[in-house]
Design a binder for these strands. Structure first.
Lengths: 222, 222
DNA sequence: TAGATTGTTAATCGATTAACAATC
DNA sequence: TAGATTGTTAATCGATTAACAATC
């Protein structure tokens, strides 16, 4: 079930988790109500934009007062599906995969990784942060039987396409893909890329810009 | 130095790494030239958009032929700063931090993490995937002395703001922040958030939408 | 040549930002 | 009440997509 299942713009949806994190910190401090001005100041966003985003979730505020922090957290968590976690399978128990398995945060954010898979015999049978590592061969069958719809893909790039196809075979509907490759899958399958390299590209470029501002480049010689 | 230092739209910049990954795979297959139509098909992007993106980097193609794969890779890697890696410090040698330290991929993508830091005495002195873990106290001094401008932040959320401030103290200009908190830092400091939770939010919602398409919800009862 | 492809200008689309009436 | 704040409509901005001449 989707809370307030209306269409929400993608940029708005991506900002919602940030609101929840900030609201939780307010709650810890005992703050009862908050205005979009205050949220915007903390997250460096336009207050109007914050209001628009919140409106998408069905949250309601009161003029002159703002939004009740407690209520707003509940509405947003409901909207984001953080109150009834979804089960997921993870494939690739390497560095990144293990890190995600050990990341308690995911469960508080709506995702429960209930099993991991790997093709490497040395990994199969192990227990990584409390999650069993099974043979990849068993994924399609188990996914179908257990009704798991989400797959987390943390395998090397060469194996990504093949593993993704096994996931689809098992009835997986959405894939969180951390391999730097564009998966070729049926249209109906949703793929969310990890975008580590996209973020890194932005980081490097902005850094270069900042460095060259500090040490102005030598003017070109004619 | 920034290759073709003109302004590039943020969405375009983020797509560039994907182009390089695809082009490298073409090169492996021995393909010599490629059209924006082919790139678009592989990455599910509009060909015109691909041309616009490539134009930003200064790449040039030939009508009827396309772009030379080899040349295009060089131009893009140059533009992205992948040919002269930038040095970085990482703080927080936990699960995620260790995973990033062990991630060979980063060095091929322009980032060289040359030292890690942690506040936990048990971690300090250790060697994680070939990178020494030092006491966080030494970060500002070392960053300044070595001229490191990039910080990777993989500490628990409660420590993030404080550690970020230490980074700024050491002359760090850009921070790749994986903690779910909006850092409050001087305007000139660039912060790239890891956006794990934003991505997860999109993933969960799209999954719910797909599931409810498969099993249409019971119509509301009057 | 004919036709695929680039490079670029124009049109469209959607998100952000501004403006402002309604409200408590 | 006066004034801060919401909720919403209008204006702006920027990215995507369409159209098309130039090119090999």
């Amino acid at each position: 079930m989707i809370g307030h299942s209306a269409k929400i713009p993608l940029p708005s949806l991506k900002r919602l988790p940030g609101y929840v994190h900030f609201l939780r910190s307010l709650k810890c401090e005992g703050v009862a109500t908050v205005s979009t001005t205050a949220i915007g100041r903390a997250l460096r966003l336009d207050p109007t934009q914050v209001r628009k985003d919140l409106a998408c979730t069905g949250a309601e505020g009161r003029p002159r007062v703002g939004y009740r922090v407690d209520d707003l957290i509940v509405v947003l968590e409901e909207f984001l599906g953080w109150r009834n976690v979804s089960e997921a399978f993870l494939v690739g128990a390497g560095h990144l995969g293990s890190a995600l398995l050990g990341y308690e945060g995911l469960r508080n954010h709506g995702l429960d990784v209930i099993a991991a898979f790997d093709s490497h015999p040395a990994k199969v049978g192990q227990d990584v942060h409390g999650v069993k590592v099974l043979d990849i061969e068993r994924l399609p069958g188990l996914a179908r039987r257990m009704g798991v719809h989400i797959g987390v893909l943390t395998v090397p790039v060469d194996a990504a396409q093949e593993v993704a196809e096994r996931m689809v075979e098992g009835g997986i509907l959405s894939i969180w893909n951390f391999a730097p490759v564009s998966l070729q899958l049926p249209e109906k399958i949703f793929v969310q890329n990890g975008e580590l390299y996209a973020q890194l590209a932005v980081l490097l470029r902005r850094t270069e810009e900042a460095v060259s501002r500090k040490t102005p480049s030598t003017p070109e010689v004619a």
